[in-house]
Nucleic acid binder design. Structure first.
Length: 412
RNA sequence: GUGACUAUCGUCUAAUGGUAAGACAACGGUUUGUGGUACCGUGAACGAGGGUCCGAUUCCCUCUAGUCACC
């Protein structure tokens, strides 16, 4: 808690896999870890103490959503996001960059206006909910996240869509670097202004690597971000507290993720946590951990749970060393990267399928969650069929527990 | 009891003398820095019997069922 400077403490390495501890002002978190998403100040359907008991030590909140509703000043008046939502552990807040990118199209569509206007100063965008215009800049994003009381603050980045030309990707990552430098300077200015409040108790600040699907641009992005003259901007020489890889899972082919990690990870500092934003499926998490990543978040367990898709662990003692020479017909890329394959250690079911109508067994007999220890597949299917809210809740609990168990195995 | 009207997927509605379209439901799929969203696909019907006609879900008759009105 005190020693913020060494934010990540390594415990052991297994090949490239890193097991350690991330220190934040609200406690330490075992890495690698997965963050349940509490976009609007709640993990949908789940109480904070339940989130904690599932094994989560940190949740993710969204700057964009909370800024618009109920407003970051309101949350500041409530104390902070922790008190507002009754979560006492660490919180990571997204910067809003991705939402501007992903929700801009919806606003454009709904109000017939240009939903996003990018400039060097920042981004002007339209709230798809009501058509209101807002302006977000690297500095404003920092202010909002400080108001929220975030423990891990993300810089505002420009998240380019896929496909994206090399030229655009280059210009975009350069802007992301300039925005990151501005955010860094502003962050440490505010920390100093905060005086007492932040002495030995400041949030962590992460940058975001871009570069789309271009190897040299990914490398360039890391070099630019780590090459910023931090002390000249009023911050510590140690620079960023962590590095995130962004601009993935935005529509690019799935096979490019291993490449992006292969290109990027070697250039990331060993002593800083690495966060893969927005991912992913279980096998993607396993492969990313094996490639040296530490932090993850994804809507999959909760959103797919709400839609009736359940994750089931196939084997209790899964070996994630990812040796798989004899697996059937791997693609060349999978063999080269020595990767886990989809479905190799787990499977998914759609509980709404008719075949579960009279299936009186647990969803996953090896799972220790509320759903699996107390209810049957037939019951859960029934709840979904008639639209009972308990359905989404039980499924979310189970899927989150699956993800937590997966991370536990990866830390072992 | 008498008269009128109606009868098409599970439900609600179209069209048509040359075997039928859509919506919802059902069934299956998609969902990666969350809109509890959205999208894609698949099955599924002319109440019963008779008549006219080359051919009837369509026109006619009877039956059955329902709705309404009257007694």
């Amino acid at each position: 808690m005190k020693n913020i400077m060494g934010a990540w403490i390594q415990k052991k390495n297994i090949d490239k896999r890193r097991v350690g501890e991330l220190i934040t002002r609200r406690g330490s978190i075992q890495t690698p870890f997965f963050m349940p998403i509490a976009t609007r100040g709640a993990v949908k359907h789940i109480l904070p103490e339940e989130v904690r008991s599932l094994g989560a030590e940190i949740v993710l909140g969204n700057t964009y959503h909370l800024w618009l509703r109920p407003g970051s000043e309101l949350i500041a008046r409530a104390g902070d996001l922790h008190r507002f939502m009754d979560w006492s552990g660490p919180i990571l807040t997204d910067s809003g960059g991705f939402q501007v990118f992903s929700l801009g199209a919806r606003a454009s569509e709904r109000f017939g206006v240009n939903g996003v206007r990018l400039s060097e100063a920042g981004v002007e965008f339209v709230d798809p909910e009501n058509g209101n215009r807002y302006f977000l800049s690297p500095e404003i994003s920092i202010d909002i996240q400080l108001d929220l009381g975030s423990d891990i603050i993300m810089v505002l980045d420009e998240c380019p869509p896929y496909p994206c030309t090399r030229e655009y990707a280059l210009a975009s990552l350069q802007r992301t670097t300039r925005w990151a430098a501005r955010a860094f300077e502003h962050f440490y200015k505010k920390i100093k202004e905060g005086g007492e409040k932040y002495v030995n108790d400041r949030p962590l600040l992460f940058c975001i690597v871009q570069g789309s699907i271009y190897e040299d641009l990914r490398v360039e992005s890391v070099k630019q971000l780590s090459g910023i003259e931090f002390s000249a901007l009023g911050g510590p020489d140690s620079g960023w507290d962590g590095y995130a890889i962004g601009g993935v899972a935005v529509g690019e082919p799935r096979e490019t993720l291993p490449d992006i990690l292969k290109w990027t990870v070697p250039y990331l500092p060993e002593d800083k946590p690495r966060y893969l934003m927005g991912l992913g499926r279980p096998e993607e998490l396993v492969n990313a951990v094996n490639a040296g990543m530490d932090m993850f978040d994804c809507v999959i367990p909760t959103r797919e749970g709400r839609h009736g898709r359940l994750f089931i662990m196939k084997s209790q003692n899964t070996n994630f060393k990812s040796q798989n020479p004899n697996k059937t017909k791997n693609t060349k890329a999978q063999n080269e990267n020595n990767n886990e394959e989809e479905g190799s250690f787990y499977e998914t079911i759609n509980i709404q399928n008719e075949r579960f109508k009279e299936d009186f067994t647990p969803v996953d007999p090896l799972c220790d969650c509320l759903l699996c220890t107390r209810y049957t597949r037939a019951y859960l299917r029934h709840l979904f069929s008639v639209g009972e809210p308990l359905a989404g809740r039980l499924a979310s609990l189970h899927n989150l527990r699956f993800y937590m168990r997966l991370m536990e195995k990866l830390r072992d």
